[in-house]
Amino acid sequence: MSLLKKIVLGFLALLVVIQLFRPSKNISTEIITADDISKKYELPQNVHQILIKKCYDCHSNNTIYPWYYNIQPVAWWIANHVKDGKRHLDFSVFKTYPEKKANHKMEELSEAINEGWMPLDSYLWIHKEATVTASDREAINAWIKGLPIVFEKHEEGEQH
């Protein structure tokens, strides 16, 4: 057997074996948890639906998994992506955030959609429906501006 054939067979065997090791799924029994952002702030239905449709996959306890999640190592990549997204902002536990953190997250949400760095391009490649439209942005920003929160002032060039 040639070296190339051994390498290809070894690679295929590895792909088969890694299918047995799957990360746990990020699925709660309820889409809107007791600590959901809608339990902290009055949230217009249209804005909540925008957040659910365009943000909750990576920023809540309820990810809707595509068929390709069943293929390793894709599932590991998606699980890590969701874990990282929830580390930055988790709408499912938003009510538990201290006030200062919650205010900062609202400021970051506005920045993320206004500057276009959320949703991530890599997510939008397959999830075109998650594109934040101008009307989505306007609705979210209007809602945030109406919240009883005070954003911190940042110096020019300061990281936040």
Rank of each mutant, 00 (worst) to 15 (best):
K101I: 09
H127R: 14
F94E: 09
Y123F: 14
K101C: 00
I140Q: 02
W117S: 10
L109G: 05
K100C: 00
L120W: 11
N141Q: 08
P98M: 04
K100H: 04
W143P: 01
D90C: 07
I144Q: 05
A112F: 09
V93S: 15
T96H: 09
M106L: 15
T131N: 12
I113C: 05
K105F: 10
K105S: 13
T133S: 15
Y123Q: 10
R137Q: 13
M118F: 12
K100D: 08
D136P: 06
Y97H: 02
E138W: 00
A112R: 05
V132I: 15
S122L: 09
R137M: 11
D121H: 07
L89P: 01
N114E: 14
A139T: 09
E107H: 14
S92W: 04
V132D: 02
A130G: 04
L109D: 13
N103P: 00
A102E: 05
S110G: 07
E107D: 13
E99T: 11
P119G: 02
K101Q: 10
P98Y: 03
E108R: 11
I140F: 08
S110N: 06
W117C: 07
E138F: 05
N141V: 09
S122T: 10
A112T: 02
L124K: 11
W117E: 07
D121V: 02
G116L: 02
T133H: 07
N141A: 04
G116C: 03
S122D: 08
N141F: 07
I144H: 03
E111S: 11
T133I: 06
S110I: 06
N103G: 14
Y97M: 05
A142P: 01
A102W: 03
R137T: 15
E107C: 07
L120S: 14
A142W: 00
E111P: 00
T96Q: 14
F91K: 02
E129D: 15
S110P: 00
Y97I: 01
L109A: 09
D90R: 01
M106H: 03
Y123N: 08
I144L: 07
K95V: 04
T131E: 09
N114A: 11
I140W: 08
H104T: 09
A134S: 12
L124S: 02
S110W: 04
K95G: 06
K95F: 08
T131K: 15
P98I: 03
H127D: 03
F94S: 05
F91I: 07
H88R: 15
K86Q: 15
W143A: 02
N141S: 08
Y97G: 03
E99W: 00
S135F: 02
N114G: 06
A134F: 01
W117M: 06
D136Q: 12
S92M: 05
D136L: 13
N114F: 06
S135A: 11
S122K: 08
H127T: 07
L89I: 13
M118A: 11
P98K: 05
Y97T: 05
E99M: 01
L109K: 03
S135P: 00
H127N: 15
K86M: 12
Y97S: 05
